[in-house]
Design a binder for these strands. Structure first.
Lengths: 228, 228
DNA sequence: CCCGCGGCTGAACATGTGGTTAGTGTACTG
DNA sequence: CAGTACACTAACCACATGTTCAGCCGCGGG
Protein backbone atom coordinates (compact mmCIF):
# COMPACT_ATOMS: atom_id res chain seq x y z
CA UNK A 1 0.00 0.00 0.00
CA UNK A 2 2.52 2.62 1.09
CA UNK A 3 4.37 3.43 -2.06
CA UNK A 4 7.70 5.13 -2.11
CA UNK A 5 7.86 6.39 1.39
CA UNK A 6 11.09 8.25 1.93
CA UNK A 7 13.12 7.14 4.90
CA UNK A 8 11.22 5.14 7.44
CA UNK A 9 8.18 7.35 7.33
CA UNK A 10 4.81 5.74 7.85
CA UNK A 11 1.75 6.98 6.02
CA UNK A 12 0.54 8.93 9.04
CA UNK A 13 3.68 11.03 8.94
CA UNK A 14 3.33 12.11 5.35
CA UNK A 15 1.75 15.30 4.19
CA UNK A 16 -1.73 15.01 2.77
CA UNK A 17 -0.69 15.45 -0.87
CA UNK A 18 1.90 12.70 -0.44
CA UNK A 19 -0.62 10.39 1.15
CA UNK A 20 -3.07 11.10 -1.64
CA UNK A 21 -0.45 10.49 -4.26
CA UNK A 22 0.63 7.22 -2.70
CA UNK A 23 -2.91 5.96 -2.48
CA UNK A 24 -3.58 7.13 -6.01
CA UNK A 25 -0.56 5.31 -7.42
CA UNK A 26 -1.72 2.11 -5.78
CA UNK A 27 -5.22 2.51 -7.15
CA UNK A 28 -4.09 3.53 -10.61
CA UNK A 29 -1.73 0.57 -10.77
CA UNK A 30 -4.50 -1.81 -9.86
CA UNK A 31 -7.46 -0.36 -11.72
CA UNK A 32 -6.06 1.85 -14.42
CA UNK A 33 -6.82 5.51 -14.87
CA UNK A 34 -10.40 5.49 -15.96
CA UNK A 35 -11.65 2.94 -13.48
CA UNK A 36 -9.85 4.50 -10.56
CA UNK A 37 -12.24 6.16 -8.17
CA UNK A 38 -11.26 9.45 -6.56
CA UNK A 39 -13.39 8.91 -3.49
CA UNK A 40 -11.86 5.51 -2.88
CA UNK A 41 -8.42 7.03 -3.26
CA UNK A 42 -9.36 9.77 -0.83
CA UNK A 43 -10.68 7.21 1.63
CA UNK A 44 -7.49 5.18 1.38
CA UNK A 45 -5.47 8.31 1.98
CA UNK A 46 -7.66 9.16 4.94
CA UNK A 47 -8.83 12.47 3.53
CA UNK A 48 -11.90 13.83 1.84
CA UNK A 49 -12.47 13.78 -1.89
CA UNK A 50 -12.51 17.54 -2.07
CA UNK A 51 -8.96 17.73 -0.83
CA UNK A 52 -7.73 15.97 -3.93
CA UNK A 53 -9.01 18.84 -6.00
CA UNK A 54 -7.70 21.33 -3.51
CA UNK A 55 -4.19 19.97 -4.04
CA UNK A 56 -4.19 18.58 -7.57
CA UNK A 57 -6.90 20.52 -9.34
CA UNK A 58 -8.44 17.59 -11.15
CA UNK A 59 -8.21 13.88 -11.67
CA UNK A 60 -5.95 14.52 -14.61
CA UNK A 61 -3.74 16.67 -12.46
CA UNK A 62 -3.45 13.89 -9.94
CA UNK A 63 -2.61 11.49 -12.74
CA UNK A 64 0.14 13.77 -13.95
CA UNK A 65 1.58 14.08 -10.46
CA UNK A 66 1.55 10.30 -10.09
CA UNK A 67 3.14 9.88 -13.50
CA UNK A 68 5.90 12.23 -12.53
CA UNK A 69 6.42 10.50 -9.24
CA UNK A 70 6.55 6.97 -10.64
CA UNK A 71 8.77 8.01 -13.50
CA UNK A 72 11.14 9.61 -11.05
CA UNK A 73 11.23 6.66 -8.68
CA UNK A 74 11.66 4.16 -11.46
CA UNK A 75 14.40 5.97 -13.30
CA UNK A 76 16.13 6.63 -10.00
CA UNK A 77 15.97 2.97 -9.14
CA UNK A 78 17.16 2.05 -12.60
CA UNK A 79 20.08 4.42 -12.30
CA UNK A 80 21.30 3.14 -8.95
CA UNK A 81 20.87 -0.63 -9.17
CA UNK A 82 20.35 -0.48 -12.87
CA UNK A 83 22.25 -1.96 -15.69
CA UNK A 84 24.97 -3.64 -13.71
CA UNK A 85 23.41 -7.07 -14.04
CA UNK A 86 22.87 -7.32 -17.77
CA UNK A 87 19.49 -7.79 -19.37
CA UNK A 88 16.53 -5.60 -18.75
CA UNK A 89 14.40 -8.71 -18.71
CA UNK A 90 16.39 -10.45 -16.06
CA UNK A 91 16.73 -7.19 -14.20
CA UNK A 92 13.04 -6.62 -13.98
CA UNK A 93 12.43 -10.13 -12.81
CA UNK A 94 14.93 -10.02 -10.03
CA UNK A 95 13.79 -6.62 -8.89
CA UNK A 96 10.21 -7.76 -8.95
CA UNK A 97 10.86 -10.85 -6.89
CA UNK A 98 13.24 -9.35 -4.41
CA UNK A 99 12.03 -5.83 -3.92
CA UNK A 100 9.31 -4.78 -1.56
CA UNK A 101 5.70 -4.37 -2.56
CA UNK A 102 6.64 -0.94 -3.72
CA UNK A 103 8.35 -1.96 -6.89
CA UNK A 104 5.52 -4.17 -7.97
CA UNK A 105 3.11 -1.29 -7.68
CA UNK A 106 5.32 1.00 -9.69
CA UNK A 107 5.86 -1.50 -12.46
CA UNK A 108 2.15 -2.19 -12.61
CA UNK A 109 1.56 1.53 -12.74
CA UNK A 110 3.96 1.91 -15.62
CA UNK A 111 2.32 -0.90 -17.53
CA UNK A 112 -1.07 0.69 -17.02
CA UNK A 113 0.25 4.02 -18.17
CA UNK A 114 1.62 2.47 -21.35
CA UNK A 115 -1.51 0.46 -22.01
CA UNK A 116 -3.72 3.52 -21.62
CA UNK A 117 -1.35 5.79 -23.49
CA UNK A 118 -0.91 8.26 -20.69
CA UNK A 119 1.15 11.38 -21.42
CA UNK A 120 4.01 9.92 -19.41
CA UNK A 121 3.86 6.66 -21.35
CA UNK A 122 6.00 8.14 -24.08
CA UNK A 123 8.78 8.86 -21.64
CA UNK A 124 8.41 5.49 -19.96
CA UNK A 125 8.87 3.57 -23.18
CA UNK A 126 11.54 5.93 -24.41
CA UNK A 127 13.58 5.21 -21.31
CA UNK A 128 12.94 1.48 -21.34
CA UNK A 129 13.54 0.99 -25.05
CA UNK A 130 16.57 3.19 -25.06
CA UNK A 131 18.11 1.34 -22.17
CA UNK A 132 17.28 -2.06 -23.64
CA UNK A 133 18.73 -1.16 -26.99
CA UNK A 134 21.85 0.10 -25.34
CA UNK A 135 22.21 -3.12 -23.38
CA UNK A 136 21.74 -5.22 -26.50
CA UNK A 137 24.27 -3.23 -28.45
CA UNK A 138 26.76 -3.49 -25.60
CA UNK A 139 26.06 -7.19 -25.20
CA UNK A 140 26.63 -7.78 -28.88
CA UNK A 141 29.83 -5.79 -28.70
CA UNK A 142 31.31 -7.71 -25.78
CA UNK A 143 30.12 -11.05 -27.08
CA UNK A 144 27.70 -11.89 -24.31
CA UNK A 145 24.75 -11.59 -26.68
CA UNK A 146 24.15 -12.47 -30.27
CA UNK A 147 24.06 -9.73 -32.85
CA UNK A 148 20.59 -8.64 -33.82
CA UNK A 149 19.56 -7.51 -37.28
CA UNK A 150 17.30 -4.88 -35.73
CA UNK A 151 18.37 -3.91 -32.20
CA UNK A 152 15.63 -1.35 -31.97
CA UNK A 153 12.88 -3.84 -32.67
CA UNK A 154 14.55 -6.31 -30.35
CA UNK A 155 14.52 -3.70 -27.62
CA UNK A 156 10.83 -3.09 -28.17
CA UNK A 157 10.22 -6.82 -28.09
CA UNK A 158 12.13 -7.11 -24.84
CA UNK A 159 10.14 -4.34 -23.24
CA UNK A 160 6.95 -5.90 -24.50
CA UNK A 161 7.80 -9.32 -23.11
CA UNK A 162 8.99 -7.95 -19.79
CA UNK A 163 5.87 -5.91 -19.39
CA UNK A 164 3.64 -8.81 -20.39
CA UNK A 165 5.31 -11.09 -17.88
CA UNK A 166 5.13 -8.59 -15.06
CA UNK A 167 1.48 -7.86 -15.68
CA UNK A 168 0.35 -11.34 -16.58
CA UNK A 169 -3.44 -11.37 -16.36
CA UNK A 170 -5.00 -13.77 -13.85
CA UNK A 171 -6.44 -16.19 -16.42
CA UNK A 172 -2.97 -16.96 -17.69
CA UNK A 173 -1.60 -17.30 -14.19
CA UNK A 174 -4.39 -19.75 -13.48
CA UNK A 175 -3.25 -21.81 -16.45
CA UNK A 176 -0.18 -22.47 -14.29
CA UNK A 177 -2.25 -23.44 -11.29
CA UNK A 178 -1.75 -20.19 -9.43
CA UNK A 179 -4.45 -17.79 -8.43
CA UNK A 180 -2.73 -14.78 -9.85
CA UNK A 181 0.68 -13.45 -10.73
CA UNK A 182 3.19 -13.68 -7.91
CA UNK A 183 6.84 -14.33 -7.25
CA UNK A 184 6.36 -18.06 -7.66
CA UNK A 185 4.66 -17.79 -11.04
CA UNK A 186 7.30 -15.36 -12.18
CA UNK A 187 10.12 -17.62 -11.03
CA UNK A 188 8.57 -20.51 -12.91
CA UNK A 189 8.01 -18.46 -16.06
CA UNK A 190 11.58 -17.22 -15.94
CA UNK A 191 12.90 -20.70 -16.68
CA UNK A 192 11.36 -21.25 -20.13
CA UNK A 193 11.90 -17.56 -20.84
CA UNK A 194 15.61 -17.84 -20.18
CA UNK A 195 15.76 -21.15 -21.99
CA UNK A 196 14.30 -19.33 -24.94
CA UNK A 197 16.74 -16.49 -24.52
CA UNK A 198 19.81 -18.70 -24.34
CA UNK A 199 19.02 -21.67 -26.55
CA UNK A 200 16.18 -20.59 -28.78
CA UNK A 201 13.29 -22.85 -29.61
CA UNK A 202 13.27 -23.77 -33.29
CA UNK A 203 15.94 -26.00 -34.69
CA UNK A 204 15.78 -24.65 -38.21
CA UNK A 205 15.61 -21.28 -39.94
CA UNK A 206 12.51 -21.65 -42.06
CA UNK A 207 10.23 -19.50 -39.95
CA UNK A 208 12.94 -16.92 -39.44
CA UNK A 209 13.56 -16.69 -43.13
CA UNK A 210 9.85 -16.38 -43.75
CA UNK A 211 9.64 -13.50 -41.30
CA UNK A 212 12.60 -11.78 -42.92
CA UNK A 213 11.06 -12.10 -46.35
CA UNK A 214 7.74 -10.82 -45.07
CA UNK A 215 9.37 -7.83 -43.47
CA UNK A 216 11.51 -7.11 -46.50
CA UNK A 217 8.54 -7.12 -48.82
CA UNK A 218 6.17 -5.36 -46.45
CA UNK A 219 8.51 -2.51 -45.71
CA UNK A 220 7.88 0.61 -47.77
CA UNK A 221 10.72 1.54 -50.09
CA UNK A 222 11.14 4.90 -48.39
CA UNK A 223 12.47 3.47 -45.14
CA UNK A 224 15.00 1.14 -46.69
CA UNK A 225 18.39 1.17 -45.09
CA UNK A 226 21.27 -1.23 -44.85
CA UNK A 227 19.79 -4.67 -44.87
CA UNK A 228 20.77 -7.34 -42.37
CA UNK B 1 -15.32 -6.76 -44.14
CA UNK B 2 -17.22 -5.96 -40.99
CA UNK B 3 -17.15 -8.42 -38.16
CA UNK B 4 -18.28 -11.94 -38.72
CA UNK B 5 -20.98 -11.40 -41.24
CA UNK B 6 -22.13 -14.68 -42.66
CA UNK B 7 -22.09 -14.91 -46.39
CA UNK B 8 -21.93 -11.62 -48.21
CA UNK B 9 -24.45 -9.96 -46.00
CA UNK B 10 -24.04 -6.28 -45.28
CA UNK B 11 -24.90 -4.80 -41.91
CA UNK B 12 -28.25 -3.53 -43.14
CA UNK B 13 -29.31 -7.06 -43.93
CA UNK B 14 -28.60 -8.44 -40.48
CA UNK B 15 -31.14 -8.81 -37.76
CA UNK B 16 -30.99 -6.24 -35.04
CA UNK B 17 -29.46 -8.56 -32.44
CA UNK B 18 -26.71 -9.49 -34.89
CA UNK B 19 -26.03 -5.85 -35.71
CA UNK B 20 -25.87 -5.04 -32.02
CA UNK B 21 -23.54 -7.91 -31.35
CA UNK B 22 -21.22 -6.95 -34.18
CA UNK B 23 -21.03 -3.36 -33.06
CA UNK B 24 -20.56 -4.48 -29.47
CA UNK B 25 -17.66 -6.77 -30.36
CA UNK B 26 -15.94 -3.93 -32.15
CA UNK B 27 -16.44 -1.60 -29.22
CA UNK B 28 -15.45 -4.15 -26.61
CA UNK B 29 -12.30 -5.01 -28.54
CA UNK B 30 -11.33 -1.37 -28.70
CA UNK B 31 -12.38 -0.10 -25.30
CA UNK B 32 -12.74 -3.10 -23.05
CA UNK B 33 -15.82 -4.07 -21.16
CA UNK B 34 -16.02 -1.39 -18.54
CA UNK B 35 -15.30 1.54 -20.81
CA UNK B 36 -17.60 0.36 -23.55
CA UNK B 37 -20.67 2.53 -23.81
CA UNK B 38 -24.03 0.98 -24.57
CA UNK B 39 -25.43 4.07 -26.22
CA UNK B 40 -22.44 4.28 -28.52
CA UNK B 41 -22.81 0.62 -29.39
CA UNK B 42 -26.49 1.15 -30.07
CA UNK B 43 -25.71 4.16 -32.25
CA UNK B 44 -23.15 2.15 -34.23
CA UNK B 45 -25.67 -0.61 -34.70
CA UNK B 46 -28.26 1.94 -35.80
CA UNK B 47 -30.70 1.06 -33.04
CA UNK B 48 -31.79 2.54 -29.74
CA UNK B 49 -30.14 1.75 -26.45
CA UNK B 50 -33.29 0.20 -25.10
CA UNK B 51 -33.25 -2.47 -27.77
CA UNK B 52 -30.04 -3.87 -26.37
CA UNK B 53 -31.87 -4.70 -23.18
CA UNK B 54 -34.84 -5.97 -25.09
CA UNK B 55 -32.62 -8.56 -26.75
CA UNK B 56 -29.81 -9.18 -24.29
CA UNK B 57 -31.26 -8.29 -20.93
CA UNK B 58 -28.28 -6.42 -19.63
CA UNK B 59 -24.80 -5.24 -20.47
CA UNK B 60 -23.43 -8.40 -18.97
CA UNK B 61 -25.78 -10.47 -21.12
CA UNK B 62 -24.49 -8.70 -24.18
CA UNK B 63 -20.94 -9.37 -23.05
CA UNK B 64 -21.71 -13.05 -22.67
CA UNK B 65 -23.26 -13.23 -26.11
CA UNK B 66 -20.21 -11.52 -27.60
CA UNK B 67 -17.89 -13.85 -25.70
CA UNK B 68 -19.72 -16.83 -27.08
CA UNK B 69 -19.64 -15.43 -30.57
CA UNK B 70 -15.95 -14.58 -30.60
CA UNK B 71 -15.00 -17.85 -28.99
CA UNK B 72 -16.98 -19.68 -31.64
CA UNK B 73 -15.52 -17.76 -34.54
CA UNK B 74 -11.98 -18.04 -33.26
CA UNK B 75 -12.07 -21.75 -32.50
CA UNK B 76 -13.76 -22.35 -35.82
CA UNK B 77 -11.04 -20.45 -37.60
CA UNK B 78 -8.38 -22.24 -35.61
CA UNK B 79 -9.90 -25.59 -36.48
CA UNK B 80 -10.05 -24.98 -40.23
CA UNK B 81 -6.79 -23.19 -40.98
CA UNK B 82 -5.33 -24.08 -37.65
CA UNK B 83 -2.27 -25.98 -36.70
CA UNK B 84 -1.17 -26.98 -40.14
CA UNK B 85 1.57 -24.38 -40.27
CA UNK B 86 3.43 -24.99 -37.04
CA UNK B 87 3.88 -22.44 -34.29
CA UNK B 88 1.04 -20.65 -32.63
CA UNK B 89 3.13 -17.53 -32.63
CA UNK B 90 3.86 -17.64 -36.28
CA UNK B 91 0.31 -18.70 -36.93
CA UNK B 92 -1.18 -15.74 -35.19
CA UNK B 93 1.13 -13.38 -36.99
CA UNK B 94 0.32 -14.65 -40.40
CA UNK B 95 -3.37 -14.68 -39.73
CA UNK B 96 -3.18 -11.18 -38.37
CA UNK B 97 -1.30 -9.83 -41.32
CA UNK B 98 -3.19 -11.63 -44.02
CA UNK B 99 -6.71 -11.81 -42.71
CA UNK B 100 -9.32 -9.12 -43.05
CA UNK B 101 -10.10 -6.55 -40.41
CA UNK B 102 -12.30 -9.14 -38.83
CA UNK B 103 -9.57 -11.22 -37.36
CA UNK B 104 -7.85 -8.28 -35.78
CA UNK B 105 -11.01 -7.30 -33.99
CA UNK B 106 -11.55 -10.79 -32.67
CA UNK B 107 -8.00 -11.15 -31.44
CA UNK B 108 -8.19 -7.77 -29.77
CA UNK B 109 -11.44 -8.84 -28.21
CA UNK B 110 -9.87 -11.98 -26.87
CA UNK B 111 -6.95 -10.07 -25.42
CA UNK B 112 -9.34 -7.69 -23.72
CA UNK B 113 -11.36 -10.56 -22.35
CA UNK B 114 -8.24 -12.14 -20.89
CA UNK B 115 -6.95 -8.87 -19.50
CA UNK B 116 -10.26 -8.13 -17.81
CA UNK B 117 -10.78 -11.70 -16.68
CA UNK B 118 -14.09 -12.15 -18.40
CA UNK B 119 -15.94 -15.43 -17.80
CA UNK B 120 -14.95 -16.57 -21.27
CA UNK B 121 -11.29 -15.74 -20.64
CA UNK B 122 -10.79 -19.06 -18.91
CA UNK B 123 -11.85 -20.93 -22.01
CA UNK B 124 -9.85 -18.68 -24.28
CA UNK B 125 -6.61 -19.32 -22.44
CA UNK B 126 -7.41 -22.98 -21.93
CA UNK B 127 -7.72 -23.41 -25.68
CA UNK B 128 -4.67 -21.34 -26.49
CA UNK B 129 -2.40 -22.83 -23.87
CA UNK B 130 -3.54 -26.35 -24.57
CA UNK B 131 -2.91 -25.93 -28.25
CA UNK B 132 0.48 -24.30 -27.72
CA UNK B 133 1.61 -26.98 -25.33
CA UNK B 134 0.52 -29.65 -27.75
CA UNK B 135 2.48 -27.99 -30.54
CA UNK B 136 5.59 -27.71 -28.40
CA UNK B 137 5.41 -31.34 -27.33
CA UNK B 138 4.92 -32.42 -30.91
CA UNK B 139 7.74 -30.16 -32.05
CA UNK B 140 10.08 -31.59 -29.46
CA UNK B 141 9.07 -35.10 -30.48
CA UNK B 142 9.74 -34.61 -34.16
CA UNK B 143 12.91 -32.64 -33.58
CA UNK B 144 11.75 -29.34 -35.04
CA UNK B 145 11.85 -27.71 -31.63
CA UNK B 146 14.11 -27.98 -28.63
CA UNK B 147 12.93 -29.86 -25.60
CA UNK B 148 11.60 -27.65 -22.84
CA UNK B 149 11.99 -28.34 -19.16
CA UNK B 150 8.47 -27.03 -18.58
CA UNK B 151 6.29 -27.21 -21.69
CA UNK B 152 3.32 -25.87 -19.82
CA UNK B 153 5.10 -22.71 -18.75
CA UNK B 154 6.54 -22.38 -22.22
CA UNK B 155 3.03 -22.56 -23.64
CA UNK B 156 1.87 -19.83 -21.30
CA UNK B 157 4.88 -17.76 -22.26
CA UNK B 158 4.09 -18.22 -25.91
CA UNK B 159 0.49 -17.15 -25.45
CA UNK B 160 1.65 -14.20 -23.42
CA UNK B 161 4.12 -13.07 -26.06
CA UNK B 162 1.69 -13.59 -28.91
CA UNK B 163 -0.97 -11.64 -27.15
CA UNK B 164 1.42 -8.88 -26.20
CA UNK B 165 2.60 -8.56 -29.79
CA UNK B 166 -0.89 -8.53 -31.23
CA UNK B 167 -2.09 -5.91 -28.79
CA UNK B 168 1.01 -3.80 -28.64
CA UNK B 169 0.02 -0.50 -27.09
CA UNK B 170 0.52 2.63 -29.21
CA UNK B 171 3.42 4.04 -27.19
CA UNK B 172 5.52 0.99 -27.98
CA UNK B 173 4.51 1.08 -31.62
CA UNK B 174 5.59 4.70 -31.70
CA UNK B 175 9.01 3.63 -30.45
CA UNK B 176 9.31 1.98 -33.84
CA UNK B 177 8.25 5.09 -35.69
CA UNK B 178 4.73 3.91 -36.44
CA UNK B 179 1.57 5.55 -35.24
CA UNK B 180 0.09 2.37 -33.90
CA UNK B 181 0.17 -1.37 -34.33
CA UNK B 182 -0.31 -2.50 -37.90
CA UNK B 183 0.84 -5.14 -40.34
CA UNK B 184 4.11 -3.33 -40.93
CA UNK B 185 5.01 -3.07 -37.28
CA UNK B 186 4.12 -6.70 -36.78
CA UNK B 187 6.19 -7.79 -39.74
CA UNK B 188 9.14 -5.88 -38.39
CA UNK B 189 8.73 -7.24 -34.88
CA UNK B 190 8.48 -10.76 -36.21
CA UNK B 191 12.10 -10.68 -37.32
CA UNK B 192 13.79 -10.24 -33.93
CA UNK B 193 11.12 -12.44 -32.42
CA UNK B 194 11.95 -15.29 -34.76
CA UNK B 195 15.65 -14.61 -34.37
CA UNK B 196 15.11 -15.05 -30.69
CA UNK B 197 13.08 -18.19 -31.25
CA UNK B 198 15.64 -19.82 -33.51
CA UNK B 199 18.99 -18.61 -32.24
CA UNK B 200 18.41 -17.34 -28.74
CA UNK B 201 20.04 -14.21 -27.44
CA UNK B 202 22.50 -14.97 -24.68
CA UNK B 203 25.73 -16.77 -25.46
CA UNK B 204 26.19 -18.30 -22.03
CA UNK B 205 24.03 -20.09 -19.47
CA UNK B 206 24.57 -17.99 -16.38
CA UNK B 207 21.20 -16.27 -16.41
CA UNK B 208 19.40 -19.48 -17.27
CA UNK B 209 21.09 -21.29 -14.42
CA UNK B 210 20.20 -18.45 -12.09
CA UNK B 211 16.57 -18.68 -13.13
CA UNK B 212 16.57 -22.42 -12.61
CA UNK B 213 18.03 -22.07 -9.15
CA UNK B 214 15.55 -19.38 -8.26
CA UNK B 215 12.64 -21.51 -9.39
CA UNK B 216 13.96 -24.61 -7.67
CA UNK B 217 14.34 -22.82 -4.36
CA UNK B 218 11.13 -20.83 -4.68
CA UNK B 219 8.80 -23.81 -4.95
CA UNK B 220 8.87 -25.66 -1.67
CA UNK B 221 5.41 -27.27 -1.40
CA UNK B 222 2.31 -25.22 -2.05
CA UNK B 223 1.85 -22.01 -0.10
CA UNK B 224 5.03 -20.60 1.29
CA UNK B 225 5.64 -17.04 2.44
CA UNK B 226 6.63 -14.83 -0.45
CA UNK B 227 9.68 -13.46 1.31
CA UNK B 228 12.91 -15.29 1.60
C1' DC C 1 -61.32 -2.89 -41.09
C1' DC C 2 -59.87 -3.73 -36.59
C1' DC C 3 -56.94 -6.45 -33.24
C1' DG C 4 -53.11 -7.85 -31.31
C1' DC C 5 -48.46 -8.87 -31.10
C1' DG C 6 -43.68 -8.26 -31.20
C1' DG C 7 -39.80 -5.38 -32.53
C1' DC C 8 -38.54 -1.08 -31.42
C1' DT C 9 -38.19 3.83 -29.63
C1' DG C 10 -37.65 7.74 -26.51
C1' DA C 11 -37.98 9.49 -22.30
C1' DA C 12 -37.52 8.85 -17.59
C1' DC C 13 -35.14 6.77 -13.54
C1' DA C 14 -31.24 5.29 -10.43
C1' DT C 15 -26.79 5.43 -9.36
C1' DG C 16 -22.18 6.56 -9.31
C1' DT C 17 -18.54 9.79 -10.32
C1' DG C 18 -15.84 14.02 -11.47
C1' DG C 19 -15.93 18.54 -10.02
C1' DT C 20 -17.33 22.86 -7.05
C1' DT C 21 -18.08 25.68 -3.14
C1' DA C 22 -19.27 27.46 1.28
C1' DG C 23 -17.90 27.00 5.59
C1' DT C 24 -14.93 25.34 9.69
C1' DG C 25 -11.11 24.65 12.46
C1' DT C 26 -6.41 25.69 13.39
C1' DA C 27 -2.01 27.52 13.43
C1' DC C 28 0.74 31.26 12.71
C1' DT C 29 1.32 36.58 12.88
C1' DG C 30 0.73 41.29 14.17
C1' DC D 1 -5.80 38.65 21.63
C1' DA D 2 -7.51 39.48 16.85
C1' DG D 3 -7.03 38.37 12.35
C1' DT D 4 -5.67 36.15 8.49
C1' DA D 5 -4.35 32.34 5.69
C1' DC D 6 -4.59 27.81 4.65
C1' DA D 7 -5.68 22.83 5.02
C1' DC D 8 -9.63 20.43 5.13
C1' DT D 9 -14.54 18.75 5.12
C1' DA D 10 -19.36 18.11 3.93
C1' DA D 11 -22.89 19.04 1.05
C1' DC D 12 -24.02 19.91 -3.44
C1' DC D 13 -24.18 19.96 -8.67
C1' DA D 14 -23.74 18.27 -13.40
C1' DC D 15 -23.39 14.63 -16.10
C1' DA D 16 -22.66 10.02 -17.89
C1' DT D 17 -24.38 5.45 -18.05
C1' DG D 18 -26.95 1.10 -17.01
C1' DT D 19 -31.66 0.11 -16.78
C1' DT D 20 -36.74 0.34 -17.03
C1' DC D 21 -41.03 1.28 -19.08
C1' DA D 22 -45.02 3.04 -21.41
C1' DG D 23 -46.19 3.32 -25.78
C1' DC D 24 -45.67 3.55 -31.11
C1' DC D 25 -45.53 1.21 -35.54
C1' DG D 26 -46.03 -2.21 -38.98
C1' DC D 27 -47.87 -6.44 -40.11
C1' DG D 28 -50.49 -10.76 -40.11
C1' DG D 29 -54.96 -12.84 -38.75
C1' DG D 30 -59.87 -12.45 -37.46
Amino acid sequence: MSSALPGGARPEDLTAPAKIRSAAIAHLARDGFQKANLRAIAADAGVSAGLIFHHFGSKKGLLTACDERVLGVLTERARTAGRASGSGLHDLHRAYVSDPEDYRVHVQYMARAIAEDTPAAERFVATLVEESEEIFRAGAADGSMRESSDPRALAVLNVLISQALLTMPPPLARALGAERLGPEVLARMAVPALELFTRGLYTDDTLLEAARDAWASARPASSRKTED
